[in-house]
Write a protein that binds this DNA or RNA. Structure first.
Lengths: 223, 223
DNA sequence: GTCTATATTCAGATAGAC
DNA sequence: GTCTATCTGAATATAGAC
């Protein structure tokens, strides 16, 4: 609607020259097809995990790889397609893990514990995805391309809340807590763990899961 | 350093004319000094609470107020000074509340419960600050101007962890959980509640605090 | 597969007229 | 106190040389 199409405008201009592209191999194997691409995704993921998707620029990613930003577009359509790959990789792991736990049809306590452990287990290999889901959720929500995120979230909620309600029905869990509220508390706490289980890797997620299961089931009170 | 000073460049160009600045008074009192300013801060806060600080533009804020972005700079130095005001307002409320709870020197269980309730109570009036602290923490950390955030966080951690450790020493809390880890779990879960206690205001924070205290102390298991 | 060069758009911010 | 007009810088992305 009434777009102004001035043919002017050139911010940027001559950019500072870098010294050299810092090659990191001197005649390696030809690389199957997209080993280079996967490497770039991993570099991007590290940056996304540090500061989120929106806060990371394609120049950041390119610099990390020792190339210029324009060169990234030989490998990727767009910045969005990079994060798409990262998010899809996460969901392709965690959702089947959830479904497997539910399909085992153990008692609800075992199911909830299994879900907690599955969630924690997926944190370490997918820090970037989890960080992006926290930081940039509302941004991604606005895009048709990422509608699958909300779908997955709905399915996950059904599984968790179902297990909690079943546990209440069987008298395993107290009935004076709200299942939906409890699910969100649990989910959020696990996701946030990615921040301090962070790059330093000070805490392994197995130990975190143990800690969390203890507190969640029995509370902080001494018996 | 070799800046290109083309005299060109005019993104924006002729902007669509708005109909009128939507005045909301027709001869009110002269307004003490900065009633207008406070109003603008509140508008900005709503936007920050929705999508964070970095994701909100000064043009967003101005549009919400029915003025142009340049006009905002009559009231504020910069976008940062707006968020500074918001964050300061939050800390000026929550930190004294924490200190008061600790100063009462009740038993550690009462102290922890008091801290939880103080934290929840501060959510509703300061949604923007809490959202910004979550979304833009790493961005703000990099700036000297916001060093006071880390200071406050350190003081808060000392109070919480102190209460948890005291409770363990008195045999009130189980000793097989890590105080620092437990504090972060609690803190993060409370902060995240701001998202779904959100704009709809579906859940009042008093009820949330009740729910949370129950689960935290006694766990989800039935007795 | 990378670089050069640049288009395009949008961000925060400013000067001065009204 | 707001608007007009614009600057400056930075972001995503593209075209074509090498």
């Amino acid at each position: 609607m009434g777009r102004v199409t001035t043919t002017r405008g050139n911010p940027g201009g001559p950019r500072p020259r870098r010294t050299a592209p810092a090659r990191r191999h001197g005649g390696d194997a030809p690389a199957p097809v997209s080993q280079r691409r996967e490497h770039l995704v991993r570099l991007a993921a590290d940056l996304f995990a540090e500061k989120g998707f929106q806060a990371t620029t394609v120049r950041n990613i390119a610099q990390e790889a020792g190339i210029l930003s324009g060169s990234l577009y030989h490998h990727f359509d767009s910045k969005e397609s990079i994060v798409d790959e990262i998010l899809t990789g996460y969901l392709d792991e965690v959702m089947p893990a959830y479904r497997k736990v539910v399909a085992e049809r153990g008692n609800p306590r075992a199911t909830v514990e299994g879900l907690v452990r599955a969630a924690f287990a997926s944190l370490a290999p997918h820090r970037a995805a989890v960080t992006v889901l926290q930081n940039d959720w509302s941004y991604l929500q606005g895009m048709d391309r990422f509608a699958y995120l909300a779908d997955a979230e709905r399915e996950a909620e059904r599984m968790w809340v179902g297990a909690i309600k079943a546990g209440q029905a069987e008298g395993l869990f107290r009935t004076d807590i709200d299942p939906g509220l409890t699910y969100r508390m649990i989910r959020d706490t696990i996701r946030l763990a990615v921040r301090w289980a962070g790059p330093g890797g000070r805490l392994d997620t197995g130990a975190l899961a143990d800690h969390y299961v203890k507190v969640m089931f029995d509370g902080v009170n001494a018996h």
